[in-house]
Simulated scan of single mutants.
Amino acid sequence: MYRYLSNSARGTILGRWKYEGQIGFNDYNDVLQPGDILFYDWNSDGRFDHAGVSVGLGYDSTYGRTGNVQDQHTYDRFHAIWHLSPYNQKRTTTTIVAIRPK
């Protein structure tokens, strides 16, 4: 899905974030809108391991904070904070890319 959206006129890459240095890893991300796809590369090796869908601002009850949240099917996450830092043991090596489908 990443290749399809990023290598065609069907999607626009919005940004790329790395936990290293925590640049851009705020709970609130001004770039994200509902429907944007978040691709997670746990090892920053260029292969995306997982994806989630941004659903807008919300409350992550597990994290206990409000911010941009996403939903995914793994572990049945509902409204998890977009960067997944509280849940991701590999957060220091994770790269996240957001794409807006057209």
Rank of each mutant, 00 (worst) to 15 (best):
Y63P: 08
S54K: 08
T12N: 09
R10S: 14
S6I: 06
G24F: 08
T66F: 13
F25C: 10
Q72W: 05
R77E: 13
E20Q: 14
A51V: 11
S44V: 02
R47L: 14
I13Y: 04
W17S: 01
R3E: 15
G52L: 06
G21L: 02
R10P: 02
R3F: 03
I99K: 04
D60R: 14
T74Q: 07
D49A: 00
G64A: 11
K90M: 00
N43A: 14
G35F: 09
V31Y: 01
Y28K: 14
R91M: 00
F39Q: 01
N26S: 15
Y63E: 08
L57N: 06
R47S: 15
Q33F: 11
L57K: 06
G21E: 06
D49W: 10
I13G: 03
Q33E: 15
G64L: 09
D36R: 11
V97Y: 01
V31E: 06
T92M: 08
L14D: 08
I37T: 12
Y87H: 07
P101M: 04
G67F: 00
A51N: 07
Y59P: 10
I37R: 10
P101A: 07
E20I: 13
D49C: 03
Y59H: 15
M1N: 09
F78P: 05
R10A: 14
W82D: 00
D76W: 11
D41Q: 01
T74R: 12
I23E: 15
Y75I: 01
G21I: 03
P101K: 01
L38Q: 09
Y63K: 08
R65K: 15
R47I: 15
H83Q: 12
R65L: 13
H73T: 05
Y87S: 02
Y2R: 04
T94A: 06
T94W: 07
I81C: 08
R47K: 15
R47E: 15
